[in-house]
Design a protein around this nucleic acid. Structure first.
Lengths: 153, 153
DNA sequence: ACGTTGACTTCGAGTGCTTGAAGTTTTCTA
DNA sequence: TAGAAAACTTCAAGCACTCGAAGTCAACGT
């Protein structure tokens, strides 16, 4: 995958825009060892990101966005280049992450339903339709009841 | 329960589920005055949220999600534009929140896919199936690109 | 070459939650 | 109705950024 051609490099600003992580967070992750030390320019102290750095940071950004702790990210990144030996630990991390995402998706669906009922409620209030407003208010209450029942299971 | 007269009330856990704000954050917002003191049970020290409290908190959750500082939220709420009679303002906030939730759901779906590819990748590595591992690795990179493009919007 | 502009550097303090400990209250189960 | 289990309480400490200050470095126009 890497012939004789030199990899192109990126400034911290470019890296930030490509990974979606703020420059301050890039420096922070490096300072606490989530990612290894980034190379500096020949003549300057400015960070120089390679495409490999960018690939790694993109993965880290994804992990971070789903709520993985910096400790777990550090472990994940440290195990990355180790190959088959670290497979089971990586798997554990990822399966846990998948579980978290599933839960999060359920919560968001619930909140979306609630917000939609509330939108309809305020539209009814604005239209002076008190009967419909009352109905929607009771729908919101019903949703709260459902939530309680689901939680018990 | 008195259906027509008394408002239904909610525990902090129910309030948390319906607003999307963790219970700890609900207590935190109250402690720093973003929201006024929440009523307590007759016989206990437990917080009891009314539907009006939930409406206010839903709006506060919208403001928080847009990145408003707690100082600004405190001012905003104190100035009263979120009172019971500000239907159109409530609506604007809620519609914006619905849009955000939809976006968030999409992001979570994408990240779930990403995590599942990574799980399959490490399973392939564990099984010694290098060809499949390579294929999955490139799938993950492709998805990371998609994730990044969506983030820019 | 020189100054100005703007992105970069480190470092320490601030922000907005979040979690843990330790204790009380409510609710479930027996 | 007792006694365990779950949910709540406050308070303090911790976490993951995030910002501001003060200074360095690089590029550009004159």
């Amino acid at each position: 995958m890497s012939p004789t051609t030199a990899q192109r490099t990126y400034s911290i600003r470019q890296a930030a825009s490509l990974t979606g992580l703020p420059a301050s967070t890039l420096r922070y992750y490096e300072s606490i060892g989530v990612i290894g030390p980034i190379g500096r320019g020949e003549t300057s102290s400015h960070r120089v990101y390679t495409e490999d750095d960018l690939d790694l940071l993109t993965s880290v950004a994804c992990l971070s966005a789903t709520g993985m702790s910096v400790d777990d990210m550090r472990t994940y990144v440290a195990n990355g280049p180790l190959g088959a030996h670290a497979a089971s630990e990586q798997l554990g991390l990822l399966v846990e992450q998948e579980r978290r995402l599933t839960l999060e998706a359920e919560q968001i669906a619930l909140r979306t339903t609630y917000v939609r009922i509330k939108i309809a409620y305020w539209q009814a209030v604005e239209a002076g339709d008190d009967a419909r407003a009352d109905d929607l208010a009771s729908q919101a209450r019903a949703l709260a009841d459902d939530l309680q029942k689901i939680k018990k299971t």
